[in-house]
């Protein structure tokens, strides 16, 4: 397969003496849902900042969407989307205003934005909400809208930070279906999360610990490899082997 949208070779990032990313090497393919896991302080945030062009690597090669993360960060920013749970949409703007704003930021033509708004609202059954403030929307709808806005400009990669944390089970399912649909269209979905049950939905996951990637495979293979029932157990076995996981039944 040569459809690698993210290609990382020997990535090292140091802050003074502290090594945040210690020789990372991995690939992410087109249309893949890639889970990026790790405990607090394992170096995830640093790696994502490098991948999204916000930080320059100390050494190593990082190619994102065909561009070099150190030198061509502006190109990278045009080709990625980002959504996090806490902040994505302006609460004091309406649905339409938010979409128009983001469309404008990513340089979409007014006519294109108008079409996209139309498509989006139809698809999400959002018509009635068009002129409503984000703050007046139910949480689940906000989440779905935030994701739609993050892929509005049809980026090659979309980064999601704990996308379904705290949402109700039904909305969560609908959200993952949206993610699958997006991935089926060829957009790569890069998910970071603390929640291992969220990781189970990914095609492949990597687990970081102390600046290194210590495991990388499909959830199924990892569970087999570590003789574990859930990704959570895998994670805990890697991070601290002497602790029992949530499910002790």
């Amino acid at each position: 397969m040569d459809n690698k949208v993210i290609k990382v070779r020997n990535l090292v990032k140091r802050f003074g003496k502290f090594v945040a990313n210690d020789n990372l090497t991995f690939d992410v393919h087109e249309g893949e849902i890639f889970g990026f896991l790790g405990a607090n302080g394992a170096g995830k945030t640093t790696a994502i900042r490098i991948l999204s062009g916000l930080l320059e690597p100390t050494s190593g090669e990082v190619i994102v969407a065909g561009f070099n993360a150190g030198r061509e960060s502006e190109q990278i920013k045009k080709n990625i989307g980002y959504m996090c749970q806490k902040f994505s949409l302006y609460e004091d703007l309406t649905v339409k205003e938010n979409i128009t704003l983001y469309g404008g930021i990513y340089g979409l033509k007014t006519s294109v934005i108008r079409n996209r708004i139309h498509e989006l609202l139809e698809k999400l059954h959002f018509r009635e909400y068009e002129n409503r403030l984000i703050s007046a929307l139910p949480l689940g709808l906000r989440q779905k809208l935030a994701f739609s806005v993050a892929v509005l400009h049809e980026p090659k990669i979309v980064f999601l930070d704990e996308p379904t944390g705290g949402v109700d089970p039904i909305t969560r399912r609908q959200f993952w279906e949206m993610i699958y649909e997006t991935a089926a269209k060829g957009i790569t979905v890069f998910v970071t999360t603390h929640y291992m049950d969220e990781a189970e939905y990914c095609d492949r996951i990597s687990i970081m610990s102390e600046g290194k990637i210590v495991a990388l495979d499909t959830p199924e293979n990892l569970k087999k490899q570590f003789n574990a029932g859930t990704v959570e157990e895998v994670f805990i076995k890697i991070a601290r082997p002497n602790i029992s996981p949530i499910h002790n039944s």
Binding site: A39, G165, H194, E232, A239, S244, I246
Partner: peptide
């Protein structure tokens, strides 16, 4: 347990 990693979460329940 919101916003806490899986290991800490597990320890917390213990």
């Amino acid at each position: 347990t919101t916003g806490v990693d899986a290991v800490s979460r597990s320890e917390f329940w213990d």
